[in-house]
């Protein structure tokens, strides 16, 4: 097994852990972290798979994508935190209430 493959599998595992966290954690900050973990997993996969040319020289495009992705992730995280803070401010909640009352 090559290193890139190993990294890629690592990334997939991270993605899975993040997914688990997002779904099962109830505390909102934990959820935020879990989503970021998912993102990190995807980025890891991308970077690992950039090493796919026979020469071993990395493909620049996935790197560019990851950079873009990080920007997106940061802004999304900021928005999440802002909303969570506002919710907490208004209601004191740290978890999402149940669905039924809409």
């Amino acid at each position: 097994m090559t290193y890139p493959t190993l990294y890629a599998i690592c990334g997939v595992v991270l993605f899975g852990i993040g997914f688990y966290g997002t779904v099962f954690c109830r505390h909102l900050i934990r959820k935020v972290m879990a989503v970021n973990l998912m993102g990190a997993g995807v980025f890891l996969v991308m970077i690992a798979l950039a090493a796919r040319t026979p020469s071993g020289a990395p493909d620049p495009i996935p790197h560019a994508m990851v950079l873009t992705g990080i920007v997106v992730a940061v802004s999304a995280t900021a928005l999440m935190l802002a909303l969570i803070r506002r919710l907490h401010h208004q209601t004191g909640l740290t978890e999402l209430p149940d669905q039924m009352e809409h």
């Binding site: 997914f19 997002t22 779904v23 099962f24 999402l96 149940d98 669905q99 039924m100």
Partner: peptide, 16 residues
């Protein structure tokens, strides 16, 4: 049905 279907947990599992 609505309670068991329309919540985060169920949706996460269904997604997978």
């Amino acid at each position: 049905m609505t309670r068991s279907l329309e919540n985060d947990l169920a949706a996460g599992l269904l997604l997978v």
